[in-house]
Simulated assay, not measured.
Amino acid sequence: MRNWITLLFFLLAAFAVAGIGGYATASSVQEWYPDLTKPSWNPPKWVFGPAWTLLFILMSVAIWRAWSRCRDQGQPSRSLLVLHGIQLGLNALWSILFFGLRRPDLALIEIFVLLLFLLALQVRLFRIDHTAGWLWSPYLAWVSFATTLNFAIWHLN
């Protein structure tokens, strides 16, 4: 039972970040973002909600699996949790910078830092649990795509 409660905690943490991002994004999506010049390959706005929902679930299950494996094997998991906490904070901060403050330039710098943390976690997760590493991969791919999109929007505007 404790293991399932821990998964719920990871899910709640991820969706708290989603809530922060949603709050930071809400007004800008309607008032500012539509007026920006975007590349032709910019996804339609309806894609982002389902994509992030799935990514937050996969991310939470991945970190939960790795944490559970560390706990079961008596390995330290503190650094894993710290990295995860930092990347969650960086994820929320990107939304605040890009949409809340309407600063794609600062968001671009920040998302590169986020990518470094995601890569570090990707390597760590694969070492701990291959399934967790694969579950983390779509998140890393999406943020890589988001970095490219952030750059394009910054460059075009």
Rank of each mutant, 00 (worst) to 15 (best):
M1C: 07
R2K: 10
N3W: 07
W4H: 02
W4E: 02
W4R: 08
W4S: 03
T6R: 10
L7V: 07
L8A: 12
F9V: 14
A13G: 06
A14V: 12
F15V: 12
A16F: 14
V17G: 08
A18M: 07
A18F: 11
G19S: 07
I20Y: 04
I20T: 13
G21Y: 14
G22R: 06
G22M: 08
G22T: 08
Y23I: 07
Y23E: 11
A24V: 06
A24Y: 14
A26C: 04
S27P: 01
S27Q: 11
S27W: 01
S28L: 04
V29K: 10
V29T: 09
E31M: 03
E31H: 11
W32V: 06
Y33Q: 05
Y33M: 08
Y33E: 08
T37A: 08
K38P: 09
K38W: 10
K38A: 06
P39G: 10
S40E: 15
W41S: 07
W41P: 05
P43L: 15
P44S: 13
P44G: 09
K45G: 09
K45E: 15
W46I: 13
W46L: 10
V47N: 03
V47K: 06
F48C: 12
G49I: 07
G49Q: 12
A51H: 10
T53Q: 05
L54D: 01
F56E: 03
I57S: 02
M59V: 09
S60F: 14
R65C: 00
W67M: 02
S68Y: 13
S68R: 13
R69N: 02
C70D: 10
C70T: 07
R71C: 03
D72Y: 02
Q73E: 05
Q73M: 11
Q73R: 07
Q75K: 13
Q75S: 09
P76S: 13
P76R: 12
S77Y: 14
S77T: 06
S77E: 09
R78A: 13
S79R: 15
L80G: 01
L80Q: 00
L81W: 11
V82E: 04
V82Q: 11
G85Q: 03
G85N: 09
G85D: 09
I86R: 01
I86N: 01
Q87L: 02
L88W: 00
L88P: 03
G89I: 03
W94A: 10
S95E: 12
S95N: 12
I96F: 12
F99N: 11
F99V: 07
F99M: 03
G100Y: 14
R102T: 14
P104V: 15
D105I: 10
A107M: 04
I109R: 15
I109A: 11
E110N: 10
E110F: 14
F112S: 11
F112L: 15
L116I: 11
L116W: 14
F117N: 08
F117S: 13
L118F: 15
L118N: 11
L118S: 15
L118Q: 14
L121K: 14
R124I: 01
L125G: 00
F126R: 07
F126N: 00
I128G: 04
I128W: 02
I128F: 01
T131G: 02
A132P: 00
G133A: 05
G133N: 02
W134K: 06
L135G: 00
L135K: 04
S137R: 06
Y139H: 04
Y139A: 11
A141L: 09
A141R: 04
V143W: 08
V143K: 03
F145N: 04
A146L: 13
T147D: 03
L149V: 01
L156P: 00
L156A: 01
